[in-house]
Amino acid sequence: MKLNPFESFLKNISETPLLAIEKKIHLSSYVPINISNTNKDLLSFDVSSSKDWENYIEAFLKKENKHVAYGGYLEKRNLYDRSAYFKNLSEEDKRNIHLGIDLWCKEKTKVLAVLKGKVHSFNFNKNHGDYGPTIILEHKIADYNFYTLYGHLSENSIQNLKVGDKFNEGEVIAELGNATVNGDYAPHLHFQIIKDLQGNKGDYPGVSSSKDLDFYKENCPNPNLLLKIND
């Protein structure tokens, strides 16, 4: 698929993969995972239970002999049906198409600034099924001004944070939270690129309805343009 100018710019920022979680976990320890509504394994446990999800992820990683399960960009998921925050009556209006990449790994895994930037905003998004503690970094590179979002963090990650705090590429900015604070999910990082925050602070939609998908695909390009996990 042909890239638009912003996507080409993102892809060319670095020839090598940029890391979102701690460097000691090598990319060879990553494995793709499908948690879309096409995965029949998800019918074998209670998808409304964060503990059952954690058990499923742990068993999947053990079976694959890996440490991180990744994926999810533009993946259509039934998972969000468990939360009134996402569920709507109309299939067209239902927000269930994922706009970031998820990195499923252990609680307290260190989260890194993928690029040099400063804290634009942060928030504890407490709705059931939401991000929990969230950090948004602002980046200015060449002629582009854009943002990266890090969701499902620990509460400690935002305790002493200030708007304007600066981070270098690869610097630790946070750690992953558990289900008690992260929106009631198995521990994972939601990483998303955002071209225009549309006035949001500390939050931005991480899933889209089919009705709005064309806009969000343009505004939230594939995070793997930076992470290059499977290149």
Rank of each mutant, 00 (worst) to 15 (best):
F215Y: 11
E175R: 08
H188D: 07
N219D: 05
F167W: 01
I229W: 01
V31K: 11
K2Y: 05
L115D: 00
G170H: 11
V68D: 04
G164I: 11
L3H: 11
D196K: 11
I35L: 13
D214N: 10
K108D: 10
N4E: 10
S50C: 06
L189C: 08
V111I: 11
N37C: 11
I21P: 05
N12P: 01
D46A: 09
H152T: 14
G202Q: 09
P205A: 06
V47S: 14
S90I: 08
W104T: 04
I193K: 01
E171N: 05
P221Y: 03
M1E: 14
L99V: 08
N34Q: 13
H139S: 08
V207R: 10
E107P: 00
D212Q: 10
K87P: 08
G202F: 02
N125P: 04
K201E: 15
L103W: 02
I35P: 04
N125H: 07
D203W: 15
D52M: 03
L99N: 02
G170K: 09
P223M: 09
S14Q: 13
T109E: 01
S14W: 11
G164P: 01
S50R: 05
I101S: 00
Q198N: 11
N222H: 08
S8T: 14
L42T: 02
P221K: 07
K126S: 15
S90V: 10
L137D: 05
L19Q: 03
N145D: 14
G177D: 11
K166L: 12
F167R: 02
N123T: 05
K94R: 06
F6R: 10
G100A: 14
F60A: 04
G132C: 06
A186V: 07
G206C: 01
V207F: 07
N12Q: 12
S90L: 14
E75I: 06
Y73T: 04
N39E: 12
K40T: 12
K94A: 03
E175V: 09
G170S: 10
H67Q: 09
M1P: 06
E75F: 11
L226D: 06
F122P: 00
K40E: 13
E171S: 15
L112F: 05
L89H: 09
D130T: 07
L189D: 04
K87L: 14
S208I: 00
Y216H: 12
P133C: 06
T134Y: 15
T180D: 15
D81S: 14
K11V: 08
T180H: 12
L189G: 06
N123I: 06
K162N: 07
I35G: 00
D214R: 09
L189Y: 05
H139Q: 06
N96P: 04
A69F: 03
S48D: 10
G170Y: 09
D212N: 08
K94Q: 12
L10Q: 01
V31G: 10
L197P: 06
N65A: 12
Q198K: 13
N160F: 14
K118S: 07
S28P: 00
Y144F: 14
E15Y: 02
L225Y: 07
W53V: 02
